[in-house]
Simulated assay, not measured.
Amino acid sequence: MRLITLALAALLLLIQYPLWLGKGGWLRVKDLEQQVEAAHDKNEELRGRNAKLDSEVRDLKDGTGAVEERARYELSMIKQNEIYVQILRKGQAAGDGVTPALPASEKPEKPARR
């Protein structure tokens, strides 16, 4: 009787091994599900970034507002028949030609429109 019990216990362990630790076992499936979930999260993040970039590209192709804004802030350009007004900080001479570096939190002033 004891031999049959040991044989059945060994058979039960042999049957359970593939279920838990085998190629298609529950632990492997759980690990793969976590990887799939992480990939879905990453894809959603990338979709959002792509939508933002697509919007910016469409705005640059179709609209002139973004191009004009970049030209004003980054290149200090003005439109024809506009008057440019520059506001100097304390201690800065009007003709010194040196523009102090602005901190990242400050944006340069927009040129005045006429």
Rank of each mutant, 00 (worst) to 15 (best):
D59Y: 02
E82P: 01
S76K: 00
R113Y: 04
W26L: 15
Q16N: 12
D62R: 14
L102C: 08
L102M: 15
L75G: 02
L13Q: 09
K30T: 04
K61I: 08
G91Q: 06
L102V: 12
L53P: 00
Y73Q: 00
R28A: 11
G95S: 09
Q92C: 08
Y73V: 00
M77V: 07
S76V: 01
A7Q: 11
V57K: 05
D62L: 11
V98Y: 03
K90G: 06
N50I: 12
W26I: 15
A112K: 02
K79R: 14
K61D: 09
A9K: 10
L21W: 11
M1Q: 09
A71F: 01
D62K: 14
I15P: 04
G95K: 05
L88I: 03
L12G: 07
N43D: 11
N81G: 03
N50F: 10
R49A: 12
V85H: 01
P108V: 01
N43E: 13
A71W: 01
K42N: 11
L12C: 09
V29A: 12
Y17L: 11
P100R: 06
E82Y: 01
I78Y: 03
L8M: 10
L32Y: 12
R72Q: 02
E106D: 11
I83Q: 01
K52A: 15
L32C: 08
I83E: 02
A104S: 14
A104C: 11
G22L: 06
R2M: 04
M77S: 08
L19I: 15
V36L: 13
L14N: 15
Q86D: 05
V29K: 12
T64W: 06
L53I: 07
E37H: 13
R58Y: 10
N81K: 08
T99F: 06
P103M: 07
L6Y: 15
H40T: 07
Q34V: 05
A51E: 15
G25V: 04
A93H: 02
R49L: 11
P18H: 02
N50C: 09
K30L: 14
G95F: 08
L14H: 08
P111C: 03
E45A: 13
Y17C: 04
D59V: 01
A94M: 04
A39L: 15
